[in-house]
């Protein structure tokens, strides 16, 4: 579904992505993208969304080049790391604005809108909302158009335990429907029951891309957290 071919990205002199090759197949996958700060996770995601143009290489989504064809983003729902919305827009109007970009879709997924009780604050402007509430709006928008691919960048940061639980439920549900879910997080324990595959990135490179089963088998651990910790300490000693 997504093919990433030898992507390089330079920010002036900073070499942020150093030749990334990845292929994501469609269906029933939740891929966890893990790595230390500034390893290029967000840049990689932005390349998929064409918010950032790769210096070299290309991203193909369902046979279309993400760099040239805005239709590739019809397939993607995106929840950014720190969502910023126009401050004067009310919650209601924010949803209306995004809907107006794609008038052809009548059947929107409003499940999160209701389970996060966003209808109760629909007249408040985005500037007055707390960080966690903004995250809720952002999450609800990501799932709104029933996207085939859902990209979540640090989705649980700032969410209270209840909201986190609701979002996790939603992610699992969508995963079972055969969606491709790409998720990044610093807190690996949050991904324990969600992820089916793990990508580990470091300094702009992919260290490994494995299924969770294989990862646990290789390391002899029971959780992703344990496995990652083991790998990290091993590489530290080498």
């Amino acid at each position: 579904m997504i093919t990433i071919k030898n992507i390089h990205k330079y920010y002036r002199k900073l070499h942020a992505l150093k030749g990334i090759d990845l292929t994501f197949e469609a269906g029933d996958r939740c891929i966890a993208l893990i790595g230390p700060n500034a390893c290029g996770k967000t840049t990689l995601i932005k390349c998929i969304l064409n918010l950032v143009t790769p210096t070299k290489g290309e991203v193909m989504i369902s046979g279309r080049n993400a760099n040239h064809d805005p239709r590739t983003r019809e397939l993607i729902g995106f929840m950014p790391q720190s969502a910023n919305f126009p401050k004067n827009l009310s919650v209601e109007n924010t949803f209306r604005l995004i809907r107006s970009v794609r008038p052809e879709i009548n059947d929107t997924d409003d499940e999160l809108y209701h389970s996060f009780h966003l209808d109760r604050i629909s007249t408040k402007t985005m500037g007055t909302l707390s960080g966690g509430t903004v995250q809720k709006v952002s999450a609800a928008l990501a799932f709104m158009f029933h996207p085939q691919i859902v990209i979540l960048d640090e989705p649980f940061a700032g969410l209270d335990p209840l909201a986190s639980g609701i979002l996790k439920e939603k992610i699992l549900k969508e995963k079972e429907k055969g969606k491709l879910i790409l998720i990044t997080s610093h807190v690996i324990s949050e991904l324990d029951h969600l992820a089916s595959h793990v990508i580990f990135m470091e300094e702009g490179r992919i260290l490994f891309y494995k299924s969770v089963g294989l990862l646990l088998e290789d390391t002899g651990e029971h959780t992703i957290t344990g496995a990652i910790m083991k790998i990290l300490t091993q590489t530290e000693y080498e």
Binding site: R71, R73, I76, P80, F85, V101
Partner: peptide, 16 residues
Amino acid sequence: NSKEFITLLLSQPIKR
């Protein structure tokens, strides 16, 4: 000041 607005809309299928 529209930076956020621009980012929000560009993650939707809209031509730059």
